[in-house]
Every structure is written in structure tokens, then in C-alpha cells.
Design a protein around this nucleic acid. Structure first.
Lengths: 191, 191
DNA sequence: GTCTATACGACGATAGAC
DNA sequence: GTCTATCGTCGTATAGAC
């Protein structure tokens, strides 16, 4: 007498987040979406955090696929620019899911999911920056993109209108700067 | 028979956010902190959102002061580097207040507060990038810093340890790239 | 495995006495 | 302006029948 399954529950939760936002994601709502009552969810997921963790992990898998597809067959610099655009597009399409993925309350759960999803960054940047700076470059790129899209989806960007020009400027400037850092010293540790 | 005031309420709310986090900021907690009962708060602030707006505005004023102080008397590039460090330090000191400042649910409230606080960015960058690119440069810088500190305070940074090296790398790369964009064309609008 | 029923708590906000 | 008392809502989670 199984009326649902883990996969269906996760899918329903994800749909709710995408269509109605993080705040609408209650156990009752998820249960209703899969055609059961709230208590039944506790047979599949220990608690709400476990369910959110599953949603989050699935979302990171999707993000990774999109970043990989964007970089596919491109030379490093072009790959980075396309990854950046794909990252922004992902966040724009499902801002609430994006917020969930980086929700501070869930970070402790599954760090591996995020790492895997961001591997394309380092892959593209490794051949752009100097040896041993791949990790820093990936961190820098993620910071820029994460900050930009968060400001954008949160309505906190400095200017109100469309931000395409600012986005291109920012991504291009960082790429240029990172490409040059190759020859420089590896970041002095000034206190 | 005034046992409290707007200023004391805002200060108490801010202290709660800093010391116990955003989630601990309830009307009851604020009231208790100033020595009254929850209903009394509604004589001073129409609702919770109004109170949060006041807290947020005050926080932006403080941030602005710190950024200005950091840039004080410095040449543009040094000013930018010091502003970046001050921005990061602010977020590190009071991460929950920082989250509140950029809370998507409050963005509609007072956009001017944020704009004013970020003026030092544009002031420092105006003489680094080409004419007419000041706004984009400020947007790019804010994006990088916002993204970096959010990843850091949310525990979502790619690497676990301290991130000083990555921070310096990122800020320096962006600065370098922006300085060079001066001679380039103003960002093509490729779809 | 699903259900009904419910415990339990927290929250924001209001009404009305003093 | 402050209080007591309370409303109404929503949330997670559990107990126990079927």
C-alpha cells in the first residue's frame, strides 16, 4: 500500500520550492503534493532536515550538469565565461532553490554535493591561472558569481534595471585579472 | 510613564541579532531586552517589519562609516583594498546582522540605505576604471565581496580552513582586471 | 504504510483595562 | 504607555488504530 516514494517526495518538495518559495515548503504541503498526510513523510525521511538535504543534493547534481554542459569542448577562457552565464541562468530560473542550496542552516549536511558541483570551475580555471592557484581562482569565481546572483535574485543589486552589462563587466574583469596573476607572486600574506 | 524609546528598542534588537542570531529576534525577545512586554512595542513600531527596517538602516550607516574610514586619505587602489578588508571584517564580526541587512524580505523597504553605504565603493573605483564604468565596477566589487563573505559566514566556502589567501587573490585579481578594462571597449552585449 | 487525532510550542498581533 | 489576556495561525513531530 505504498502511495508514494522517496523520489516522488523529493520531486514534490523541489517543485514547491521552485513554484512557491522556500517558506511554502512545509511538511503538510509536501505531503499534500504527493497525496498523503504529513505523518507519512516520517516513514521515508527522519525529519524535515533530511528531506531538505535530499532536495539540496539533487539540485547540486543538476547544477553540475549544466555547468559541465556549458564548458563542454570550450577552451578555458570561453569555458569560464559560459560557466558563469550558466550559473547565473540557473539561479535566475529557480531563485528559491538556489537559496536553499546555499542555506546556512543546511551547510553542515552535505559539503561533498557542493564541491562536486563546483568542480567545473576549477577545471576551467586551472589552465588560466598559475600552478597551485586553481583552488583560489575557483573560490574567487564562485564568490563573484554567488554574490552577483544573490544580489540579483534578492533585489539588492545597486541598480534596479537589468544587470547584463554589469555582469559581463565583472566576469570579464575577474577573468582578465586572474589570467595576469599567473606571473605574479602567489598572494602575499600581509596581516 | 515611558519605560523605553525607539532608540533603545532598535539597539536591543540589534544586540539580539548580533549575539543570538536572526532567528532569536522575536518581538517578545526584544521587549524583554528593553524591560517591557511585547504589545508595548507596537506603540513605537507599526509591526515587526518596521522595526527590522530601522535596525537595518542603522547597520548600513555603521557599515558606511567603517568603509569611509578605511578609504580615508588613501589613493584609489589602496582605498579599494582597504575597503574590501573592512567590508569582510564587518561581516565577520556580526554575520547575522549582515544577513539581516541583505535579507531579501526586507529589500523593498529602504534601498537608499544600502546605496549610501556603498558609495565609498564607487568613489574609490571611479578613478581606477574608465569613464562611465564606475557603476559597473562598484557592482562588480560588491558582488565579489558579498559572495565571498556570504560563503564564509555561511560555512559554504569551497575550502574549510582560513580564506585569507583566497580573499587576497580574488580582490587583487578583480582590481587588476578592472584597471585594465579602462582601455577596452565597454563590455559587448553578446547574447 | 497510511491514516486520524493531537500534543506542543512559537510566533505576530489585537482588545481593552488601568 | 504599559499591562494582562488572548486570539489565530502555523510549524514539527508522535501515538496508536487500521
Amino acid at each position: 500500500m505504498t502511495k508514494t516514494s522517496e523520489a516522488k517526495i523529493v520531486a514534490a518538495a523541489r517543485r514547491i520550492v521552485r513554484e512557491q518559495g522556500c517558506e511554502a515548503l512545509t511538511q503538510r504541503a509536501v505531503a499534500a503534493a504527493v497525496g498523503v498526510k504529513a505523518p507519512s513523510l516520517y516513514k521515508r525521511f527522519r525529519d524535515k532536515a533530511a528531506l531538505l538535504g535530499a532536495v539540496r543534493a539533487e539540485a547540486f547534481v543538476d547544477l553540475e550538469a549544466r555547468l559541465r554542459a556549458a564548458a563542454q569542448g570550450q577552451p578555458p577562457a570561453a569555458a569560464f565565461l559560459r560557466i558563469a552565464a550558466a550559473f547565473r541562468a540557473f539561479a535566475a530560473e529557480c531563485p528559491d532553490l538556489y537559496r536553499l542550496m546555499f542555506d546556512p542552516a543546511l551547510q553542515s549536511a552535505d559539503r561533498a554535493a557542493e564541491s562536486r558541483a563546483l568542480a567545473p570551475f576549477e577545471a576551467a580555471l586551472r589552465n588560466i591561472v598559475g600552478a597551485g592557484q586553481g583552488a583560489s581562482a575557483a573560490h574567487a569565481a564562485l564568490s563573484l558569481l554567488h554574490g552577483f546572483v544573490r544580489l540579483e535574485i534578492d533585489g539588492a543589486a545597486p541598480s534596479p534595471g537589468p544587470h547584463d552589462e554589469a555582469f559581463h563587466f565583472a566576469v570579464f574583469a575577474l577573468l582578465q585579472g586572474m589570467a595576469q596573476s599567473e606571473a605574479k607572486e602567489p598572494a602575499p600574506n600581509a596581516a
